[in-house]
Amino acid sequence: MESATGGFKQVLGSGASSTVYKGVLGERSGGNVAVKVLDKLREDDNREFTTEVKVIAGTNHKNLVKLVGVCSEGKNHLLVYEYMSNGSLASLLFKADPRPNWYTRAQIAISVARGVEQTRTMTAIRGTKGYVAPEWFRNMAITTKVDVYSFGVVLLELVCCRRGFEMEGYEEEEMVLVDWAHECYGDRMVGRLVEKDEEAMKDLVKVERFVKIGLWCVQEDPCLRPEMKKVVHMLEGAVEVSVPPSPASYINTV
């Protein structure tokens, strides 16, 4: 892998627990691959890593990047994915100029939801700070609802076309997107989330529906989060979306 990446020189992106490099490996993906180098794992993390690799390797969906191979030696773990020349969703949302319009983002949201529902995993972002469900840090069972939480954060990012956590250019109460979305929805001022997006401002009914779905997905209590199949139906407008509980509702019960 060191040879394939030219000494791990070209960084494609990084997260809280990994860095992705561009590499060249045979004829796959036109010869190009994306090599994800995970932080060194503890010995007791190896079983979880093996399980997650099996899940990723078993997925086959047009909306999900394919796993080409795995390298595992001691505490060093690398995942080799097909290279996507158009970049990641994050690059499309936060770095592209111009960024995708509201109608395109809405379609992307539905497409991603369908992919998660069919594969039942969002492993690619599970280790990235900001997308991780709170039960990972508590003495609670880990279920597929952690993926629902991660999708909820992505959905709110798609609606607002901003990262889940931003400091530059935002007031203190706006920095954490999940909290800001809860506040705006609670104050019946969802338009504040998309006030600089003319197309979204003209489609506030759908914006509010998507925000409500996102808030259901990021509920602190995993039992309150909907199954991904229902999320897809809600996004498509086939199922009515009820009012999500406020964050204080959960705090007052624990």
Rank of each mutant, 00 (worst) to 15 (best):
D187H: 06
T5R: 04
A124C: 11
K129E: 09
E166R: 06
G58L: 09
A106L: 13
Y81W: 14
E240Y: 02
V231M: 12
T50H: 04
S150Q: 11
M140W: 04
R163M: 04
L64G: 03
K95M: 11
S111C: 08
S249P: 00
K22N: 03
Y21G: 03
E227H: 14
E208V: 00
N86R: 13
T51W: 00
E135N: 05
K202A: 12
L224A: 09
M201N: 01
V20H: 03
T104R: 15
P226A: 10
F94L: 14
A141F: 02
E168Q: 11
G31M: 08
K196W: 04
R209V: 01
S72P: 00
G87W: 04
R120S: 12
V148W: 13
E2D: 14
A141R: 13
T51E: 12
P245C: 09
I56D: 01
P222A: 06
L64E: 04
V20M: 06
Y103I: 11
H61T: 07
D147C: 07
G87P: 07
T128C: 02
S88M: 07
K62E: 13
E173Q: 13
G164T: 11
F165E: 01
T128E: 06
C223R: 13
K95E: 15
A16L: 02
F210P: 01
V68E: 14
R28M: 10
F94Q: 06
N32M: 01
V207G: 10
Y83K: 03
A16M: 02
L89M: 13
E82N: 12
T5V: 03
E168V: 14
Q219V: 00
N86P: 00
Y131L: 10
N60V: 00
R162F: 02
L235P: 02
S3M: 09
V146C: 15
P247F: 05
S246V: 07
T123R: 03
F49R: 08
Y83M: 07
E173I: 05
V176H: 12
D147N: 14
C160K: 04
E208G: 01
A248F: 08
M122Y: 04
Y250G: 00
F210E: 02
H233Q: 15
V211P: 01
V218W: 03
M122W: 08
I251V: 14
Q107M: 10
G214W: 08
A200L: 10
K95F: 07
A16K: 08
S72Q: 12
I251Y: 11
C71G: 07
K75N: 12
F151E: 11
V194I: 09
T119G: 02
D221S: 13
L25D: 02
L224C: 09
S88N: 08
N76V: 08
V116C: 11
A113I: 12
Y170G: 00
A16T: 12
Y149V: 05
E240R: 10
R114Q: 14
E48Q: 15
L158V: 05
G74D: 07
E135A: 07
K54N: 11
G69S: 15
K196T: 10
T128M: 06
L177K: 03
L64C: 14
Q118G: 00
G186Y: 03
R138N: 11
V241W: 05
P245Q: 13
E52C: 07
